[in-house]
């Protein structure tokens, strides 16, 4: 009878015996921490990347010099690329796993559910995530491998950029994607502090300000380039 079940139900395995890394990945808290950590890496990259991209406003020479700079130390470049790759994989896999698990936690959905205070961003992380993922894939084919680029010239980053974003459709997709990134970070940048256990009633207001600020900076900063190219401000 139920009472028996109450006693019978297995309690969590003694943490002492479980392997730390194993628990880190299997436990929901650990997984979220990994997402936060990878999120930080990705955040750092996009921030730097945006600053780099803004060089485009300084003209072809300037952007290309920056691009070359990235390549003077190949081992370093690859190191960075590997770190990024790992981060994206960990982040995406964890995110997708949690998203799938989430459905099992509430098999029967509410007929009517009314959110009260939560932001839409917080409830759509997986979708903004997928958008970003999809974008990155296309983006690499476009500007790194050039296969998706109308007229790819090895080494001439500026040219490739203008060539690609000169097409309205591409430019708009870029803008939408980075807007998605902004939304993702709007919630993500605050949530990661919760996941890492850093926030409390003293810090939270500041953390939320930080999150919004950078979400906007990145969104706008990135969006500026495709728009500038589209309207001929860059490469016009």
């Amino acid at each position: 009878m139920r009472g028996m079940a109450t006693a019978a139900k297995p309690s969590a395995a003694a943490p002492a015996r479980a392997s730390r890394l194993g628990v880190l990945w299997t436990s929901l808290v650990g997984k979220k921490a990994l997402m936060a950590a990878s999120g930080i890496v990705l955040f750092a990259f996009v921030l730097g990347h945006m600053i780099g991209n803004l060089q485009a406003f300084g003209g072809p020479a300037r952007l290309n010099r920056y691009a070359e700079l990235l390549r003077v130390e190949p081992p370093l470049l690859w190191a960075v690329r590997i770190v990024l790759l790992v981060a994206v994989v960990v982040h995406a896999v964890a995110g997708i796993q949690l998203w799938l698990a989430r459905r099992e936690s509430r098999p029967v959905p509410y007929r009517r559910y009314a959110p009260t205070v939560s932001t839409p961003a917080s409830r759509t992380m997986i979708w903004s995530g997928f958008l970003v993922l999809g974008f990155v894939v296309y983006h690499l084919l476009d500007l790194t491998f050039g296969v998706a680029n109308p007229s790819y010239r090895e080494g001439d980053v500026f040219h490739n950029l203008v060539a690609s974003l000169g097409r309205g459709a591409a430019a708009i997709f870029y803008v939408v994607a980075v807007a998605g990134l902004g939304v993702h970070l709007w919630h993500g940048l605050w949530s990661m502090f919760q996941s890492l256990g850093v926030s409390n009633r003293a810090y939270t207001p500041g953390i939320k300000r930080f999150a919004v600020t950078f979400a906007v900076i990145l969104g706008v900063g990135f969006a500026a380039i495709p728009l500038a190219v589209l309207f001929g401000v860059i490469g016009g």
Binding site: M1, R2, G3, M4, T6, A7, S11
Partner: peptide, 13 residues
């Protein structure tokens, strides 16, 4: 004690 197995509880009973 329930976890220790010495007590069995019967709620809604």
């Amino acid at each position: 004690q329930v976890a220790a197995g010495t007590v069995r509880q019967f709620p809604r009973t």
